[in-house]
Every structure is written in C-alpha cells, then in structure tokens.
Amino acid sequence: MTNSIESKTANEVICATLSDAVKTTPDLVVLTSDSRGSAGMTSFISDNPANSIETGIAEQNLVTVAAGLAHAHKRPFVFSPAAFLTMRSVEQVKVDVAYSKTNVKLIGISGGNSYSNLGTTHHSLQDLAITCAIPNLEVYTPADQFETRALLNYLIHSKKPAYVRVGKRKLDNCYPKDWSTFVPGKANILRNGADICLISAGETLFPTLQAASILATKGIEATVVDLVSIKPLDTELLHKLAQKFNLILSVEEHSIINGIGAQIATIIAQHAHAKLKILGFPDEPAISGTQDEVFAYYGLDAESIAQKAILSLKG
C-alpha cells in the first residue's frame, strides 16, 4: 500500500491517461451522454474537441454511435453512469459492440453503490452479472489509481471490446505508485497468508486489505487477491487457491447473485474442496446513506469482513 501518496478518483486517472494518450493516438474518441462532468472528462473534451462526441441523454445511441465509429477505425471510449450503460444500453452493448466485435471501451462511471443516496435508479449492483454474461466482452474493475492507470494503458492499445466499472470517490491506494502491470485474465496476490483467502476487486479491495491487517493482529494470516479481471477470469490461480485453502471469502460491491463470488463458486465447485463465503449486496434495493454507512450496513467494511472471516473459520 502507498498511503503516503494522495488518493485519486478513477475518473481523474482516466482523464489524465487519455489526455496523454490522445497526443499519440489521434483515433481515440471520447463519447459522453451529458455525462462529461460526472465522468471527470471536461478537461479532455475542452482540450480535444475534435476527439469528443456528445450524444445527449441517449445512452442507447451513445453505444451504437461508438460502435459505428469503431467500425470506421476509431478507438472510442464511452462514458456513462454504469447503471444506465449496462441496463439501458445493454442490447446495444450485446449486439453493436460485443457481437459485432467493435473496438469500443465502455467505461461505467459511478458504478456499484457510488450514488448511494440517489436510489436504485442510479445503483449498478448487477452490472458485472450482466456484462460477464455477454460473449466477446472483457470486464474489469480496478481498485486504485495505479491499477486504473495500468488498465487504461492496456485498453488504449487493445482491440477488444471491454466494459470497465469504476466508482466515483477517491480510491485508497492498494498498489505501489510505480505499478504498471495489467494482464487480462490475471489476478494479483497482494498479501500472503496461510489461514484464509480473501478475494475482492474494485472498491471493496481496500477494506479487504484492512480486514487482513485486523486479522493479523488476532493471529490469523490471510492471503488477499485482487481479481480485477472479472472476465477473462484467472481460473488457473483460482484453481490453485481453491485447492490450497479450506476457506475462501469473497467481497464485492455487487449483488451476491451472479457477481464475483458466484464466479469463484463455479470454479471451486468444479475443481476443489474449499468452502466459500460470499459477501456482497443482498437481493433487495439498497438502503440509503453515505457509501461508508451502506458498506458497513451490509457488512462490507473492514471490521465486518474481519469478523465474518473469524466466524467462518470457527465454522
């Protein structure tokens, strides 16, 4: 962890990385649906008007136009709240992007529970389930500024369609500042311990790391894995972990239905004996509150994760 470095939002990192990349990648195009401010892309659009397209509040057309641009050899990055991008536009994502294999990068901003007090209309707690079920589409959710930067540098050069879920708030640092590794289908082990394996991705990775620190004070050593690449999944590592550990705990800012935990469960059920506990959002409209309050209510804060681990180990 790199706590001495100021934390940043994913949006800040994405804007800076694309602003830099467009200087040498003139085919890069940013599309927004009245979402430039929410996406933190205002400076990119002001500085690069010829590389920016506004579609208005029309998320279906946002995705389809991006697919048309990609078909005509552009490299579109599409920004819209994850809740709308993965539901309002899901058929456009399935047909125009994934099925047609157009090189569109879909950036779902303010994902998960970022818009905590704005209600279910603005929550995207099913986006990973939806996007992972679409063939030809890669799905990623980075955890901090350094991983976001590494991921973006991959996406800029990749020719494959991808969906990326990022949150709204400043991300606590989980990686060293010079982290530049991003490999599709490759998870990262951030901490090694023999007693329990904790797997997370995105904004719940940091409280999961904190939970491992709490557990260490109680003599429980945890391995912590950042899945980051939700599709393709690092099945090789998951096989190994499922054979090595008796207990795996997954933590996610997503519905417990068909999210990260469910994907891990599929691997374990096929290949190993480990028990799995899935921590996430229950199958109900989420309560209102600050994001931290909501995380704590659903047991996704560091203390709750640690307690759940201890209880499960006693099991």
Binding site: T64, A67, G68, H71, Q92, V95, D96
Partner: peptide
C-alpha cells in the same frame, strides 16, 4: 458491415460511421 437483426440499431451505427 455490421451485425444487425434487432431493429433500431442501423441508423445509430450509420451516424457513427458518418461522424468518423
């Protein structure tokens, strides 16, 4: 050029190609 079949997609695709 593109995979179609679900209706209502072609014009938006055309907008993207024409913009490019």
């Amino acid at each position: 050029e593109m995979n179609t079949g679900s209706l209502g997609h072609g014009l938006g695709l055309g907008v993207g190609v024409a913009l490019a």
